[in-house]
């Protein structure tokens, strides 16, 4: 039951982009076309899950064990940066086709605050390892859902007559606001 609550709350109720404001840069940056949005979501799902797995182990077996909790921020960001780099190298060797699909998005993910944010949130919420991984995956799915819906909206916006001053980012932000309003319908669900 806890797992179902974690999944629903992470995807719909506390959506990482529309409610928590994490990962806004890729949300605005790579949402112009649906295929790129799907590619980015896949890369985030992959890295986020791995990152939470690794940072959870480090927090519990290194930082907590040695009483070094204040080094959390530095350690986590370095681990994530190294992890992204490593995933890139391994993918290139093992699965060139997957690398082709996700390759260009991987470097962008280091500076995606969703990854560091979810890693820290998992520790703050005191999840065990399995709950943490489920939490990470559902957040990544929530991110993908918001990103794909939003890119669909933006593809349509390109064809609309928008007042000059509102073109580009302003109208995109306002559509995101309306999308966030729609997601507010899910509040109190859990």
């Amino acid at each position: 039951m806890t797992y179902i609550i974690i999944i629903i709350s992470a995807i719909f109720v506390n959506n990482i982009v529309l409610n928590q404001f994490l990962g806004i840069c890729p949300f605005l940056g790579v949402s112009k076309k649906i295929p790129t949005a799907i590619g980015m979501s896949g890369a985030v799902l992959f890295v986020l899950t791995l990152a939470v797995l690794v940072t959870w182990l480090i927090q519990h077996y290194v930082l907590d064990a040695l009483g070094l909790q204040f080094l959390q921020t530095i350690t986590f960001i370095l681990v994530i940066a190294a992890l992204v780099q490593m995933v890139e190298i391994i993918l290139k060797k093992v699965s060139p086709s997957l690398f082709q699909a996700l390759g260009i998005f991987l470097p962008l993910i280091t500076t995606n605050c969703a990854v560091l944010g979810v890693a820290i949130l998992t520790i703050q919420k005191d999840f065990n390892l399995l709950e943490g991984i489920v939490f990470a995956m559902s957040n990544a799915i929530g991110f993908g859902l918001a990103l794909v819906i939003f890119s669909g909206i933006r593809e349509h916006l390109d064809l609309m007559e928008v007042p000059k001053g509102m073109r580009g980012i302003p109208i995109a932000l306002i559509s995101a606001g309306i999308l966030a309003l729609a997601f507010m319908g899910f509040s109190n669900l859990v």
Partner: peptide, 22 residues
């Protein structure tokens, strides 16, 4: 109330940027 909640952030920033562009 909506402006204190999450959607208001997007909408307020959208209009602010539009005004600054103008």
């Amino acid at each position: 109330l909506v402006f204190v909640l999450a959607p208001g952030a997007f909408i307020a920033l959208g209009y602010l940027i539009a005004m600054i562009n103008r």
